[in-house]
């Protein structure tokens, strides 16, 4: 976890990102005008750190992520693509979701279907 713990968290006012017991917790909203520019570098650096640390799984808790715009949904899609291309040290992406939030109920099952060997869902 050495590299993962060293990744600077993104500085976006509407979003709180933190590590809690080895899991990435995302709280708030991801609705910036350009999520790829504002948050993309963080997710990429986080992915690379996971690979360097040779982790087999990372848990991402999104239960308090109340709104994500469609451009930000693409960040999660991109993340799964990076993992699928990672031959040396692939890992599992386990999302802890809140089925009461409509966007999570509709988005994550589709993501799971598109990348079944990468994405795993854990209802809260």
């Amino acid at each position: 976890m050495k590299n993962v713990e060293a990744v600077p968290m993104p500085e976006v006012s509407s979003l709180v990102a933190r590590l809690d017991g080895g899991r990435l917790v995302l709280e708030g909203t991801m609705a910036t005008q350009n999520p790829a520019a504002d948050l993309g570098p963080f997710f990429k650096a986080f992915h690379q750190a996971i690979v360097q640390d040779r982790l087999k799984e990372i848990v991402v808790d999104v239960t308090k992520l109340t709104f994500v715009n469609s451009s930000a949904i693409r960040l999660f899609v991109d993340w799964t693509t990076w993992i699928r291309k990672e031959e040396a040290s692939p890992y599992r992406l386990a999302f802890v979701t809140d089925p009461a939030l409509t966007w999570q109920k509709t988005t994550f099952p589709v993501l799971k279907n598109l990348a079944p060997s990468v994405v795993f869902l854990k209802p809260s």
């Binding site: 715009n69 469609s70 949904i73 693409r74 899609v77 799964t80 693509t81 409509t102 966007w103 509709t106 988005t107 589709v110 993501l111 598109l114 990348a115």
Partner: peptide, 22 residues
């Protein structure tokens, strides 16, 4: 739309979301 997003295309995910999610 999610699939197109995965392959790097222009997904028009937002409109699909209005109908499917909303």
């Amino acid at each position: 739309a999610m699939q197109r997003s995965m392959s790097g295309g222009k997904p028009m995910l937002g409109l699909a979301r209005v109908s499917h999610e909303c």
